[in-house]
Structure formats: C-alpha cells, structure tokens
Design a protein around this nucleic acid. Structure first.
Lengths: 165, 165
DNA sequence: ACTCGGTTTCAGGCAGACTGTAACTCATGG
DNA sequence: CCATGAGTTACAGTCTGCCTGAAACCGAGT
C-alpha cells in the first residue's frame, strides 16, 4: 500500500545525500533480518551461529567463558546453548551440575549448521559487493572497519562477534 | 577482560577481509546504540524521533496513519506517542475517545527535540565520513543506498523510516 | 579447614514489539 | 431512518531476548 516504510521512496528523489548514519542503521537492520530469516529456516538464530563459531575456534570452553566472548551474561548464553544442545549441535563432555564448569564441543551436526551459516553470509556478501560501484568493493570493508572502531562500545550493547573461519 | 567482543581483535590481524555483511551489521548496531544513547539523554528513543519526523512532515495525521508509515501496528505507535504526549512534544488537537480519529501536532518542545535529534545524526555522520579514506566519502552513501535496495523488506522487520528534513 | 572467586542453575523482571478484543465514529446503501 | 461495515482508538495479554537477583556448588589458596 505505498508504504515508503524504509524511506527509500523519499530518498531516491534527488541530491540531499541523506544521513550516512541512517543508511548504515537501515542497511544493518535489513541485512540482519535477511540473515536471521535464512538462518531461521534451519532452526537457528544469529546468536546460535555466533556461539557455534566461537566454540569451533576454541573448543572445551565453559558457558561463562563463551558468554564473556559474546559479551552477554552467562544466563543468556546458557539459554542460547540450550537450543543448540537440544538440536544436537553441541554437547557437553563433562557431566552437568551446579558448580561444575562445563566443557562444550561442536558436533558434526553443529559443523553442518556452521558451514550453512557461513554460506548465508557469503551470499549476503555477494549481494552487498555487487551493489557498490566498480572497484569500490575492496574499499568498502576497510572503511566499515575503520568506522566501526570510531564508535566506542557503549554500555548496554551486547554485540555478537563474528563466526567466520 | 580482553573481551574481543566485536571480533575486531581477531579482525585487525591480516588479509582475510571478513564478511562485509557482518561488518555492516556490526556497524549498524554500533551506530544505532550510539544514537539511541545520545537520544536517551534527552528522554526519547529513536522511534520517538522517527514519529516526530513523520508528524512534522505531514501534520494532522492519525495514530493509525502514523503507524502505517512507520510500518508498525497502531498499538505500538500509540505506545510511542504516549511518551511524546506526556513530554509535551506532540498534542492532539481533537478530543480523545474510542472511535474518534485523532489529529496530531508537533509542539515547540517537539521541534526542539527533533532538531536535537538531527544534530545527533549530523554528528554521527561526521564520524562516519571521517572514517572513510579520502574521496570515498561521497561514494559511500550511494553505495549503501544501492545495497539497501538489494535487500527486500522481509516479513517481520518494522524499519523506522527516516526523520531528516 | 575454610574461605573466596568462579560457575551453573533457577526464578523473576523489563522493554518493545505483537495479537486479540472491545468500544466507538462515520459514511454509505437500502 | 437506520443498519451495516470499514476505520479508529483503547485496553489487556503474550512473546522474545535480554537482564538482575539469588541460590547451590566446585576447586584452589592461604
């Protein structure tokens, strides 16, 4: 119904370059929604993929350590891992119990999901780099990275870290 | 400590360019958090600023119409406006009541807040454009815009539209 | 031996969106 | 005239991620 919801309609008219900050926020959200939806088709969300990535890179870490790296509380991370355990994507190689620090491992199913998520990211990357003009593609990532460093991590953010490789 | 939460630590090492999609998501969230915090110091959030912008551009619209433009449900928009009304930033020029369509106006206080929000965005823009290399600054916005159009609005997004000008 | 930091686990809370439902207005057609 | 139905405001409840609070427990250091 002629929504104009993203503002693009009003944007695409003319010169006033429209706030870069706004564009970054909008694009970030769009991409996140896209990734989240694609991942959702396989039963996981972004935070699960992130946890899988962390766990793959450094196995045998505990809930709390994992939480620390993802910058969330141990409770939230436990909640995230609950789904992954139930889906058979990670297992704890130590027996459960109140104060017993857990060692977690990624299973074969976990690796399957992880690679699948990586494919989703690769696809999104292709779309993005196809959108920048000509040779600006390899100029984009460093710029984004530089901008990222210029915005401090403020209290109350969370951020989920990356999962590649 | 030694959080590495955003992955930057792992990123800044070497060549593997790291997913552009990931960077966009991370930067988008960082910028949003930044804007939200700055706005929060003045008692409003992004959605309030967005509503103020919409209302400033096209006055005398109703709750539902406003909700339609922001792509949220009327209930959510009503909730957003509740704060703005209580803060004296918008007033309804018609009397309340169950089925009576409301006409809403931005007050002087509302304009003050709107301009203030615009300043926040301008500041963020400056930070971003300062982060891109040399002449890439005016190349960034079009690229982001082009990328934005390549990601369809998927079911379950919301998006808040823009508020500038 | 025993305290203390780190950990897991359970319970509750909060914010922002949503759906569901009720009450009401207003234009339109019979 | 008035009944019907689309549109709107209003109120309540729900859900999802995340949080804080508190309890139970392990394991190393003194």
């Amino acid at each position: 119904m002629a929504e104009d919801k993203s503002g693009t309609g009003a944007i695409s008219r003319t010169g006033p370059p429209i706030s870069a900050a706004f564009l970054v926020m909008a694009l970030g959200r769009r991409v996140k929604d896209h990734v989240e939806n694609r991942l959702g088709e396989h039963g996981i969300a972004l935070r699960h993929l992130s946890a899988l990535g962390h766990l793959h890179r450094t196995p045998d870490v505990s809930y709390s350590e994992l939480a620390r790296r993802a910058a969330v509380t141990p409770q939230s991370m436990q909640d995230t891992l609950r789904l992954l355990e139930k889906a058979g994507a990670v297992v704890r190689v130590t027996e459960p119990g109140r104060g017993r620090t857990a060692k977690l491992r990624v299973t074969d199913e976990g690796h399957r999901l992880r690679l699948l998520g990586q494919a989703v990211f690769d696809a999104a990357d292709a779309v993005i780099t196809a959108a920048v003009p000509s040779g600006g593609a390899d100029l984009l990532a460093p710029a984004l990275l530089a901008a990222l460093e210029r915005f401090p991590v403020e209290p109350g953010s969370a951020e989920s870290s990356r999962e590649t490789s």
